[in-house]
Amino acid sequence: MLTHFQYKKLYENTQIPGWNFSFYFKKQKFNGIYHQNGKIEWTSSTPNAEDEVKVIEQIHELMLFHVYDH
């Protein structure tokens, strides 16, 4: 489960999509960039391979809820 999920716009120009995000997972902080097409670019270490798929699914759900479903 992701905790302390935060996101903010990547660019000051709000017409350009992209968001920085951060969260904690298993007591480790992760950072990344969420692109308009849903691609995730990790700017910190990545979750281990067995957890990464679940983490990415949770990030997609959170971004859909917070950004697109407003």
Rank of each mutant, 00 (worst) to 15 (best):
H4E: 13
F5P: 00
F5K: 06
Y7F: 10
Y7E: 11
K9Q: 11
L10S: 01
Y11A: 05
N13F: 08
T14R: 08
Q15H: 11
I16L: 09
I16E: 10
P17I: 05
P17L: 09
P17N: 04
G18T: 06
G18M: 06
G18N: 07
W19M: 10
W19C: 07
N20E: 13
S22N: 10
S22V: 03
K27R: 15
Q28G: 05
F30A: 01
N31Q: 10
G32V: 01
G32S: 02
I33C: 09
H35S: 12
H35G: 00
N37T: 06
N37R: 13
G38I: 06
K39A: 11
K39R: 13
I40Y: 07
W42N: 06
S44V: 12
S44D: 13
S45P: 06
T46I: 06
P47N: 01
P47D: 00
E50A: 12
D51E: 14
D51Q: 11
D51T: 02
E52A: 07
E52H: 14
E52F: 00
V53K: 11
K54V: 00
K54R: 12
E57Y: 13
E57S: 10
E57C: 04
Q58T: 03
I59N: 00
E61N: 12
E61G: 13
L62V: 00
L62M: 08
V67K: 14
H70V: 09
H70N: 10
H70W: 07
H70S: 04
